[in-house]
Simulated assay, not measured.
Amino acid sequence: MNEITVTELSALPDAVIVDVREDDEYANAHIPGVTHIPLSDFVARVNDVPDASPVYVVCAAGGRSAQAVSYLAGRGIDAVNVAGGTIAWQQAGLPVQQGA
Rank of each mutant, 00 (worst) to 15 (best):
P50Y: 14
P95K: 15
D41E: 09
S40R: 12
Y56F: 13
T7R: 09
D24Y: 08
I31D: 00
F42A: 08
F42V: 09
M1G: 10
P13G: 12
Y56V: 01
T7Y: 06
E8Y: 08
H36L: 10
C59S: 09
A11C: 11
S53N: 10
Y56T: 09
G85K: 02
A92D: 07
G63E: 03
Q90K: 13
P50E: 07
G99L: 12
V43S: 15
V34P: 00
V16H: 08
L12C: 03
A88T: 15
S10Q: 06
T86H: 13
V34D: 00
V18N: 06
G33D: 05
L9S: 04
A88C: 11
G63A: 05
E25C: 09
E3C: 01
A92G: 03
Q91M: 08
F42E: 08
R64L: 02
P38E: 08
S65P: 14
V34L: 00
F42M: 11
N2E: 12
L39M: 14
V57E: 01
A11G: 10
A66C: 06
I37A: 03
T86S: 13
Y56E: 05
M1Q: 12
A92Q: 11
Y71A: 05
A44W: 02
Q91F: 04
L72Y: 14
L72P: 01
W89M: 11
V80E: 12
